[in-house]
């Protein structure tokens, strides 16, 4: 009994000690001059990248490309009634697989782990409605855009929120963790209380259950939600800057990045993304949004 007790205390102290040691080690490396730190960061990034990504040739050789898509974000990336991936992003992914001549292994992602999946090499490309932002561009490389997006806010028709000033001090706004809506509101409206969910489906259910006064997300999504569900209205259709959505690859994966850029440019000549829109988004948004949403040939 006593031995057991001593053992427990010792192992506890040991863990604490190890942590303290690693802390001090990190502390000392961080206290070096900024220039050195930056250099170190670059070396680290390069080392990470070497282990983390596959070039176009390596992908072709292996015969399979791993593409990260959403599985719960209709109509952009979702699993349809037959269990197949479908949507605007997936339509493009299918074409990438075809033009590379490889099979596609779809990897289902959540908003918050898109960067990690690239950095750890779990996927070659992220095609999960990934909005281009400065912060993200420091962590991953974005190819040319294929869609436009802004933020939007949807709320119940009987209490429509038309301006963010309408939101009371105790009201909660639903957002999905890791989205541009979350970052934008955190940065520009720190007083608004956010209720965060880690997946689209959960945020949607919570909003339907009345857990928040409004739901802020990409405007494409809130518009789709309001069209599909009665009793909701998009009170704020465009918030913040107009952004673009683009495929992303692991930082430093130039061969795949260049291949994607060439692909997107050449697809422009056949109006591929308009066809994509008509195939996947027309039912949801109608023809009115086609020119607003689609970016053809990377421009």
């Amino acid at each position: 009994m006593k031995n057991n007790f001593v053992k427990r205390i010792t192992s506890g102290l040991l863990v604490t000690g190890l942590l303290a040691a690693s802390l001090t080690a990190c502390g000392s490396s961080a206290s070096t001059s900024e220039v050195a730190e930056e250099k170190e960061g670059k070396v680290e990034a390069a080392a990470d990248a070497d282990a983390g990504f596959r070039t176009v040739d390596e992908i072709k050789e292996s015969g399979t490309i791993n593409i990260g898509v959403f599985s719960d974000k209709s109509p952009f990336g979702y699993v349809d009634e037959n269990g197949e991936y479908a949507g605007y992003d997936v339509y493009f992914a299918e074409r990438i697989g075809k033009d590379l001549g490889v099979d596609i292994n779809y990897v289902s992602t959540e908003a918050a782990n898109r960067i990690e999946y690239l950095q750890t090499g779990k996927v070659d490309i992220i095609l999960a409605n990934f909005t281009v932002t400065e912060e993200r561009a420091q962590e991953v490389d974005f190819a040319l855009p294929y869609m436009n997006v802004a933020l939007g806010v949807v709320s119940p028709s009987d209490a429509v929120i038309e301006s963010l000033d309408d939101i009371g001090a105790d009201d909660q706004v639903i957002v999905i963790s890791g989205t541009t809506a979350e970052t934008y509101l955190t940065k520009n409206y720190p007083d608004i209380k956010l209720q965060k969910y880690d997946a689209y489906a959960e945020a949607k259910t919570a909003f339907e259950n009345g857990n928040g006064v409004a739901w802020a997300n990409d405007n494409t999504e809130v518009i789709a939600f309001a069209i599909e569900n009665e009793g909701y209205e998009v009170g704020i259709p465009s918030l913040g800057d107009q952004d673009t959505i683009a495929p992303a690859v692991t930082k430093g994966n130039e061969s795949l990045l260049n291949w994607l850029n060439d692909e997107i440019e050449s697809l422009g000549s056949e109006n591929f993304f308009h066809a994509d829109y008509e195939e996947t988004l027309l039912d949801t948004y109608g023809a009115d949004y086609e020119d607003t949403l689609v970016v053809e040939g990377g421009k």
Binding site: A112, N113, I115, E139, I174, K196, D198, E202
Partner: peptide, 17 residues
């Protein structure tokens, strides 16, 4: 939607990587 330790970590990673 409870901001427990795990979610706080995931959330911060999602925002600032």
């Amino acid at each position: 939607s409870l901001m427990d330790l795990m979610f706080t970590a995931k959330d911060l990673i999602g925002m600032y990587a």
